[in-house]
Structure formats: structure tokens, C-alpha cells
């Protein structure tokens, strides 16, 4: 029994039943397939993280974000600038207690290099209802090259706990035709 020592002194040499060995082989092969799937997706799939990241500081990052806002602001909404950067450019979004700044406006099917960093604590970038979720750290600049393939109004919700105002930390991204 499982609660007593094995009755045989040498139990290693007892052969394994056919059903068990068959299942072990199938399960092992399934594991290899799932492992290969992740590598395959890096080659053929369209949704991957580049792992392009840099060390930065809140000051350096917000300087870049401010420069972008000054250059490409198109209007204001809820007291926040709305920015329409040119396709292909570097776009910055600041996470801080408790807002995503600024509001961004993308064009459909165009590609942007979105930079994310936090000014204070960790935050979670959660694009809704698309449901793309990224972790945002202070002192790290994460670059995501993304291509919005649908137009509309999207929410950016914070999904990493960041204190008492966490649930109010909602931003916005527009995608125009």
C-alpha cells in the first residue's frame, strides 16, 4: 500500500503495465508538442512579446512622453491631452497613480512602437475589450510594436493593484479608420 514500504526489496525492476507506459508516452509527446507550439508561434504567430526593453528613469521617460504630446496633441478630453502620433513612430504612455497618460489615437492597420513605463508603483496595462495584458514597471521602458486591426474606442484598465485609487485608473485609446 501507499502508506507502507514497498513489499519488494528491489521494486525498480518490476515491469510497468502496458496501459501505464502507453499513457506516459502519449503524455510526454503532448508535452513536447505544447513546448514546440510556443516556439512555432514566435516564428509564424502574430502575437508575441519582442522582449525589447530598456532601463530608464521616470524623469527621462516623462520627458519623452511630454515631447510627443507637445508635438502631436490634437484635442483635450476629460482634462487630458489626446495625441495622434504618425504611424510607425515611437509612442509613449505613462502609468502613474491613478491615470494612463495621455489618451492615444491610432489609425487602423498602422503599426506603432508603444513604450510603457510607470512613474511610481507597478501597474497593469489591460486593453479592453481586446484583452491584451502587460505588466508596467517603474524604471523599465517596455516597447511593444502593435498594429490595431479594428477601429473604435478602447479602455485601458489597470489590473495590477496600485493602492486605494486603483479601480479609478482607466485610460483610453482610440483607433480611427
Amino acid at each position: 500500500m501507499a502508506i507502507t514500504p514497498p513489499p519488494e526489496r528491489v521494486w525498480w525492476n518490476i515491469p510497468i503495465a502496458r496501459t501505464e507506459i502507453t499513457w506516459i508516452v502519449i503524455a510526454f509527446a503532448w508535452g513536447l508538442l505544447m513546448f514546440s507550439a510556443m516556439i512555432y508561434w514566435h516564428i509564424e504567430g502574430e502575437q508575441n512579446l519582442s522582449n525589447e526593453s530598456y532601463r530608464t528613469t521616470p524623469a527621462a521617460f516623462s520627458e519623452k512622453a511630454n515631447a510627443m504630446v507637445e508635438q502631436y496633441q490634437v484635442r483635450e478630453e476629460a482634462g487630458m491631452p489626446v495625441v495622434h502620433p504618425p504611424p510607425g513612430s515611437d509612442v509613449y504612455m505613462i502609468a502613474r497613480l491613478w491615470q494612463w497618460w495621455p489618451i492615444l489615437e491610432f489609425e487602423k492597420d498602422q503599426t506603432y512602437r508603444l513604450h510603457l513605463s510607470s512613474m511610481d508603483w507597478q501597474h497593469g496595462f489591460s486593453l479592453q475589450p481586446v484583452n491584451i495584458n502587460l505588466q508596467v514597471h517603474p524604471n523599465y521602458d517596455m516597447v511593444v510594436t502593435l498594429t490595431p486591426n479594428e477601429s473604435g474606442e478602447f479602455g485601458v484598465v489597470c489590473n495590477e493593484f496600485c493602492g486605494i485609487g486603483h479601480h479609478n485608473m482607466i485610460g483610453k485609446i482610440y483607433v480611427t479608420e
Partner: peptide, 24 residues
């Protein structure tokens, strides 16, 4: 979660938020 609701959030209605997002 598959509908996008975040974990560790007190309120998903966004009642006090400046910018709102409506979950389904």
C-alpha cells in the same frame, strides 16, 4: 476574466473614474 474583468479591483463600474470603461 475572459471578459476582461481585472483581479484585485474594488469596483468595476468605474463610478468615480474620470474616464469610464463599461464591461459587458
Amino acid at each position: 476574466g475572459t471578459l476582461g474583468v481585472p483581479r484585485r479591483v474594488w469596483d468595476i463600474t468605474g463610478a468615480d473614474a474620470l474616464i469610464k470603461y463599461d464591461y459587458s
